[in-house]
Amino acid sequence: MYKIAKMNKIAPAGLKHFTDKYEFTDSLSDASGLILRSQHIHDEKFGENLLAIARAGTGVNNIPLERCADEGICVFNTPGGNSNSVKELVLAGLLMASRKIPSAIRWTADLKDDPDMASKVEKGKSKFKGGEIAGKTLGVIGLGAVGSRISNAVTALGMHVVGYDAYLSPRTALHLDPTIKLAPDIKTVMRKADFITIHVPGNDKTRNLVGEEEIAAMKPGAVLMNYSRAFVCDEDAVVKALDEGRISRYVTDFATEKTLGHEGVITTPHLGASTKEAEDNCALMAADELMDFIENGNAVHAVNFPDADLGPMNGDMRIAVMTKGIKAPVDTVIRALNNIEIDAVAGGAKGDYGYVLVSTKTPFEYIPKISGCIRCRVIAEMED
């Protein structure tokens, strides 16, 4: 029986998805897997049995990725599981900013019980005159699962799209509307767009990705939207640009002291993935990732190790090897296992870390010492 620890409120659909080979525990010390959402676990101590952590969501800045890798713990996220939910919120943000909807709602609410309400509404509505999004240009920074969905959706609404992604995958590119233009850098997006929306991972590389120089390149009066993480935008530069009238609105899903309450800021309380459908999708994906890794050794949507997938076990045994500092982990592992007849192999390297999954149907007595090995695991099918 495998034990799964859980943190945060995980959607019941995901918890029910675990088979009867699993039971839940409140202790990390004896768990084989951990499923969580946004719980901050940088200071947590993990037990020696912990094999994997699955984040039911996309951002993993709440997890100590490098420490987990050094301890042989594979971290997964669920890309695409909440992409439709975020897409719909971004569409709402576009319309809120272009039509001044939040300000109009607040102003109208203040007229309650005013005997002259009807007259004031007709006289006062002109101050909230906005613009249509059709015919305008949306700049999309980050064309992953969320950014690509948004790009296609606004194209259908009559907008033009210019996008930038330093790591655009061929698969994503094939699914983009053919009218979408790709820019060579962020500043080009800023110069061309009336609205800019950001969808990049939140990590040290993207901290202050949009700063003074990028904001200075924006069209006068443009709208900046941040649905990645608060720190992806230099908030001092954002507030300064708002105060100087260089940008008209900052729409963000992250409440911070610097921006909350500012007249030009529209803030929602991290609602991007807050739909039942998104929570169910992410929890189901996270459960599948944990079970597949624990039972089959397959790593799909791994964050701190490369992916490796040999499909379900089929009467074979598997050797799962995690390495650090090895340039060619697959070759290294194959050479080390020269006493074993290998039927299939998958894996590779991600930065300094490697993951190699080997399948064999030949019984073996021992596993030789493997250079740079962090963790080595022999996986056999569990009897029902």
Results as ranks from 00 to 15, higher is better:
230 A>P: 06
28 L>V: 10
238 V>L: 08
109 A>E: 15
3 K>P: 01
217 A>Q: 05
267 T>M: 08
52 A>H: 04
7 M>S: 11
360 T>S: 15
354 G>L: 08
265 V>F: 05
234 D>M: 09
217 A>W: 04
286 A>H: 07
52 A>N: 04
243 D>I: 01
351 G>M: 11
313 M>K: 13
353 Y>C: 01
271 L>T: 08
232 V>H: 01
265 V>R: 05
245 G>K: 00
302 A>R: 05
139 G>Q: 10
238 V>A: 06
62 N>V: 11
344 A>R: 15
130 G>F: 09
25 T>L: 01
273 A>W: 04
102 P>Y: 10
371 S>Q: 14
69 A>K: 03
28 L>K: 05
219 K>L: 14
310 L>Q: 02
80 G>S: 09
323 T>N: 08
246 R>A: 04
150 I>D: 08
319 I>V: 14
239 V>M: 09
279 E>T: 00
313 M>Y: 11
94 L>S: 05
184 P>L: 08
344 A>M: 14
163 G>V: 02
184 P>Q: 09
186 I>V: 13
324 K>E: 11
291 M>R: 07
163 G>E: 10
42 H>N: 08
31 A>L: 05
137 T>K: 13
227 Y>G: 01
46 F>L: 11
196 I>R: 01
304 N>F: 01
324 K>Y: 03
324 K>F: 01
173 A>I: 00
